[in-house]
C-alpha cells in the first residue's frame, strides 16, 4: 500500500481510530455476488480527526436525500465493509429497520457515537452501514465477535440509547456467517 497515512492536522482533535467512508449503489439488473459488491464499493474519504470527519461528512449527501438502492458505510481504516474481511468473518451486526424519513438523523447519531467511542466495547466495533431502500431504510452496526453475548448486548443497549427510537423498534442480531450461508443481503 502506497497511500499516505492519514494523520490529524495541527490543532485538530484526534480520534481513537482512523475511519473510511464508503459508498455503494446497486446497478439495476446486475447479479449480486461478492465480487460485484466489492467492485461497487467506492472509498470516499479517510479521516483521523474530528475536523477531518466533518470536512468529509459535510460534503456528502445526507442518506435520506439519496435515491434508489444506495449504501453508506463507515468502517475503521483497514477493514473493508465485507463479511469476508478478517475483522468481520467471525462477527455479526445489529440491524435496525427504520421508517422512511428517519435515516439521516439516525445515521448521524450512530456515526457520532462511533467516532466518539461511546460504545465502550474495546476494539469490537468494525463499522456501520445505512442502507437506503424503497420501503424502509436499514441501519446496521457491525462488530468483530458474534458469539460474545456480553459485548453484543452492550452494543444493543448503547445503540438504543443513542438512536432514541420508539421502544417498540425491532432490533435483530445476525451473524455474518448466517448471512453468508443464506445469501441474504439488503
Amino acid at each position: 500500500e502506497s497511500r499516505p497515512v492519514v494523520k490529524p492536522g495541527k490543532g485538530e482533535h484526534p480520534l481513537q481510530f482512523n475511519y473510511c467512508f464508503w459508498f455503494s449503489r446497486r446497478t439495476p439488473g446486475k447479479q449480486t455476488s461478492s465480487s460485484s459488491y466489492d467492485q461497487n464499493l467506492k472509498n470516499i474519504g479517510t479521516f483521523a480527526s474530528v475536523e477531518q470527519f466533518f470536512a468529509n461528512y459535510s460534503h456528502i449527501a445526507r442518506p435520506g436525500d439519496l435515491s434508489g438502492h444506495s449504501d453508506y458505510h463507515l468502517f475503521k481504516e483497514g477493514v473493508r465493509p465485507m463479511w469476508e474481511d478478517d475483522a468481520n468473518k467471525n462477527g455479526g451486526k445489529w440491524i435496525v429497520r427504520l421508517k422512511k424519513g428517519l435515516a439521516s438523523r439516525c445515521w448521524e447519531n450512530l456515526v457520532f457515537a462511533m467516532i466518539g467511542e461511546q460504545f465502550m466495547v474495546g476494539e469490537e466495533i468494525c463499522g456501520a452501514v445505512i442502507s437506503i431502500r424503497y420501503q424502509e431504510d436499514i441501519l446496521s452496526l457491525w462488530n468483530r465477535t458474534a458469539h460474545d453475548q456480553q459485548t453484543t448486548s452492550r452494543i444493543r443497549d448503547t445503540l438504543k440509547r443513542i438512536l432514541n427510537l420508539p421502544p417498540n423498534t425491532i432490533m435483530e442480531y445476525k451473524k455474518h456467517s448466517e448471512s453468508l450461508s443464506d445469501n441474504s443481503s439488503f
Partner: peptide
C-alpha cells in the same frame, strides 16, 4: 490505555470550527 471519547455536543461544536471546512 486511555480512550479518546467525544460526546455528541462536543462534536456539534467542532462542526462549526473553521478547521472542519
Amino acid at each position: 490505555g486511555t480512550r479518546i471519547v467525544y460526546e455528541r455536543h462536543f462534536l456539534m461544536q467542532c462542526r462549526n470550527s473553521p478547521l472542519a471546512k
